[in-house]
Amino acid sequence: MTFEELVFYFFSAILVFAATMVVFIKKPVHAALYLVLAFFSSAGVWLLLDAEFLAVTLVLVYVGAVMVLFLFVVMMLDINLAPLKEGFARYLPAGILIGLVVLAELAFVFLGDYFGPEQYPNPGHHPADYSNTAELGSKLYTEYFLAFELAAVILLVAIIAAIVLTLRPKRWSKYVSPEEQVSITRKGRVKLVDPKADKD
């Protein structure tokens, strides 16, 4: 076994273990942390494929931002675990059945004629001066320009939709615009009065 294979099996073993734990562990925060571990290990596997840009972006976007917000939400939830465990036996046959169907479908695809391992031989390694980042950039902005821009537009729509859906009208919040806060003067804040002292 070469060193590279050793690294591959190391990351893959952690990846499979972490992914399994995401499904089976009971505490939601632990599940989210195992998902982080899964992302990190798959980034390691991608690095072995010379895809350093994708690997680093996976860590940057999913581990560094998305999962942080995920954890943020999960930590704030007060989940009662007892109802979650209810009906495990009742749903077990259906769960096994669905699992088997998914497995069979995957087997049809990957063991078939079109996506089998012989259709996708090991691409080998690129020379040392190969830059995955530059390659990806020039491909995305030339060959796949339309698809890339379409994806960007869809994401933009999603961003705007998310903002509009969660935007509260001003009367619901106690937001004070910073311009008004900054431009406040002494006159607007303090009113000096001269109370008449009682004479008696």
Binding site: F40, G64, A65
Partner: peptide, 9 residues
Amino acid sequence: LYILAITSV
């Protein structure tokens, strides 16, 4: 990119 990713972890 590596620095940005690692520090975000």
